[in-house]
Amino acid sequence: MNNHTTRQIHIGSVPIGGGAPVVVQSMTNTDTRDVPATLAQIERLAAAGCEIVRVAVPDDTAAKAMPALCAASPLPVVADIHFDARLAVASLEGGAAALRINPGNIGGPAKVDMVVDAAKAHKAPIRIGVNAGSLEKELLHRFHGPTPEALVESAMSHVALLEKRGFEAIKISLKSSSVPDTLAAYRLLASRCPYPLHTGITEAGTLLRGAVKSAVGIGILLSEGLGDTIRVSLTHDPVREVEVAWQILRSLGLRQRGPEIISCPTCGRTEIDLIGLAQAVEERLAHVSQTFTVAVMGCVVNGPGEAREADVGIAGGRGKGILFRKGQVVGSVTGGQQELLNALMQEIEAFLQER
Rank of each mutant, 00 (worst) to 15 (best):
G219Q: 13
T32M: 02
L277Y: 06
H144N: 13
G336R: 08
I272L: 09
N3F: 04
L222E: 08
S91R: 05
V77I: 07
D34H: 11
T38D: 02
P76S: 10
E168H: 11
N3L: 09
P265N: 15
S251L: 14
S73E: 02
T266K: 06
M114L: 13
L161W: 04
A65Y: 07
E93M: 02
L69H: 04
T266H: 05
E282S: 15
E349Y: 07
E149V: 00
I101R: 06
T334Q: 11
I81V: 12
A350K: 10
V77Q: 03
I201L: 14
L234K: 12
T6N: 01
E93T: 03
C50G: 02
D59K: 12
G316Y: 03
P15T: 05
G298V: 11
R325A: 10
L344S: 09
A65G: 10
R7N: 09
E153G: 01
K213S: 11
D117S: 05
E224P: 13
G200L: 02
I126V: 15
H198E: 00
A119M: 09
I172C: 05
T270S: 10
V57S: 08
T28E: 00
G268M: 13
Q353Y: 06
A63V: 06
K120V: 08
M1Q: 08
G253L: 15
I9W: 02
R7T: 06
A286S: 15
P180L: 15
P196D: 08
R318P: 06
V333P: 03
I11D: 03
M66G: 07
T229Q: 00
V22F: 02
D80R: 03
A71D: 14
D84Q: 14
I172S: 03
A118P: 10
V159M: 08
H122Y: 13
C193L: 14
V55N: 05
R54T: 01
L274F: 09
R240Y: 09
A85T: 09
A90G: 08
G321Q: 08
A20W: 07
G327Y: 13
R269P: 01
Q256Y: 14
T30G: 01
S91D: 03
E354R: 12
T206H: 15
G12W: 05
R255P: 06
V116K: 04
